[in-house]
Design a protein around this nucleic acid. Structure first.
Length: 290
DNA sequence: AAGATTGTTGCTTA
DNA sequence: TTAAGCAACAATCT
């Protein structure tokens, strides 16, 4: 599930390789993957990728002429860039047991929804098993309007402690649910929400409004720390995520609670418990999260 | 073989 | 009026 660190990793991978490339054509294999797109290929063909950006979990390709492509990977989306003569790798569903190197498979595969062809012969594959993700072409203004719906970016100054505190104070919902709300902070999903709360020592089901000033401060710091580490390790591969080269993320083995139901807590004598909260699988240690 | 998996939206309910 | 709650969506795995 691509969250901020995964999307950031993809952004960096693609940025290095794709900026300056001219799109020659786009093959839309599944029309549902491209929102409002009868003439998507026509509109973007001939344009050069001028820049690539990320906001929350959204990826933004800048094409010039006031044209921007927004990409949301949702649950199972993948973006894999292949150089002209490069061996095609990546793109299949991973098992936990798979060694990191064991990522292979031909592209396109049966989950490939869109293929961008570049003048250089390079290709960009958009794969999405569950078909939740989307690609959308927008004007600069429409793009800005869309981005305005998102809360602050947690890894830059944007993420103000005071505002964070004020927003949490206003909410009666469980703190985990608040963290998943993209208007509060952009980019946190189920995995990093659980990890940040563990790091802060706060139970996920605590009402947000009931957190002390000190706890909020700690949570604020934990969010930044966990996300930063996630980026550092190139994201978490749990099910489907792969980076821009089709490789798994390295943060998976550093997860302390997510997916570790029944295992011993890394901090204390407790055991990791799993509950259902805000409709999501939620992992925490009942001993050291209070 | 039903239930779990999750990000976001849009509808309903309070 | 605003917020909170929840179904819906999609395909695959256990």
């Amino acid at each position: 599930m691509p969250e901020l660190p995964e999307v950031e990793t993809i952004k960096r991978d693609l940025g290095e390789r794709m900026i300056g490339e001219k799109i020659s054509r786009v093959q839309v294999k599944d029309f549902r993957a491209v929102k409002g797109s009868s003439s998507f290929s026509k509109k973007v063909s001939g344009k050069v990728v001028k820049g690539i950006d990320r906001r929350g979990k959204l990826l933004i390709l800048e094409l010039g002429d006031d044209a921007y492509i927004l990409i949301h990977l949702k649950m199972t989306g993948q973006l894999i860039y292949c150089h002209n003569q490069e061996m095609i790798a990546g793109g299949h569903t991973l098992n936990k047991e798979d060694p990191v190197e064991n990522v292979g498979g031909e592209l396109p595969n049966k989950h490939t929804r869109v293929v961008f062809y570049f003048l250089s012969g390079d290709k960009l594959f958009f794969n999405d098993m569950r078909r939740f993700g989307y690609i959308k072409l927008l004007s600069g203004k429409d793009k800005e309007d869309k981005l305005k719906e998102l809360g602050p970016e947690p890894l830059i100054k944007d993420f103000n402690l005071k505002t964070f505190q004020e927003n949490l104070r206003k909410r009666k919902v469980a703190v985990k649910k608040a963290l998943l709300d993209q208007k509060l902070v952009a980019g946190i999903g189920n995995i990093y929400a659980d990890e940040a709360l563990f790091s802060a020592g706060i139970r996920p089901d605590r009402p947000a409004e009931g957190l002390s000033e000190e706890e909020i401060k700690k949570l604020h710091k934990s969010i930044k720390g966990i996300l930063k580490k996630g980026v550092e390790y190139r994201g978490t591969t749990f099910n489907n995520y792969v980076d821009g080269q089709g490789k798994q993320g390295g943060f998976s083995r550093l997860l302390k609670v997510y997916g570790r139901e029944g295992e011993k807590c890394p901090n204390c004598k407790g055991y990791i418990k799993k509950i259902r909260l805000a409709g999501r699988g939620t992992h925490y240690c009942p001993e050291c999260q209070r």
